[in-house]
Amino acid sequence: MKKIYHNIKHLVPWMIAAAIFFYLFWQYPPKKVWESLAYVNIPAFLSFSLIYFFLLYFLDAWSIKDLMKRFGYAATLGGLLLGRGVTYLVMIVNYPASQAAFAYYLRRKYNTPIFRALGIFLFIVFVDLLWIITLAFIGSSLQDYNIGGIDLKRTIQIVALITYSGAAIWMMFWKMMPKKIDGHGFIRSVLRKIKERDIFQIFSQAGISDYVRIAITRAPIHMAIIFYMYIVLQTFDVSCPIIRILGNVPVVFMIGTLPITPGGLGTTNAAMVELLSPYITSPLFESGRISPREMLFAITILWMATNYVIKAIVGTILMKRVSKNLFKPTLELPQEIAEKEATHMHGNI
Rank of each mutant, 00 (worst) to 15 (best):
Q234H: 09
P220I: 10
I147M: 15
L161N: 03
G166M: 06
M176Y: 03
I260K: 04
D198T: 09
E35T: 05
Q205C: 09
I245Y: 14
K3F: 09
I8M: 09
F22W: 10
Y279I: 03
S204M: 01
A100Q: 14
F45T: 06
H10P: 00
Y105R: 14
I317R: 12
L191I: 08
A206G: 10
I158N: 13
E336A: 14
M176E: 09
F123T: 03
F327A: 02
I16Q: 02
T76M: 08
K9I: 12
F186Y: 07
S204A: 11
I51C: 10
K109D: 13
L81H: 12
G315F: 00
I42D: 03
N7M: 13
Q335V: 10
L82D: 08
R218C: 09
S209W: 04
I147L: 14
E332C: 06
S49L: 07
M223N: 01
Y57I: 05
L246M: 12
I169S: 02
A61P: 06
L276S: 11
S239I: 09
D144Q: 11
K193V: 03
L161T: 10
A342T: 14
I245T: 11
L265Q: 08
A38I: 10
P113G: 03
F327G: 07
I162M: 15
F126T: 10
K32L: 09
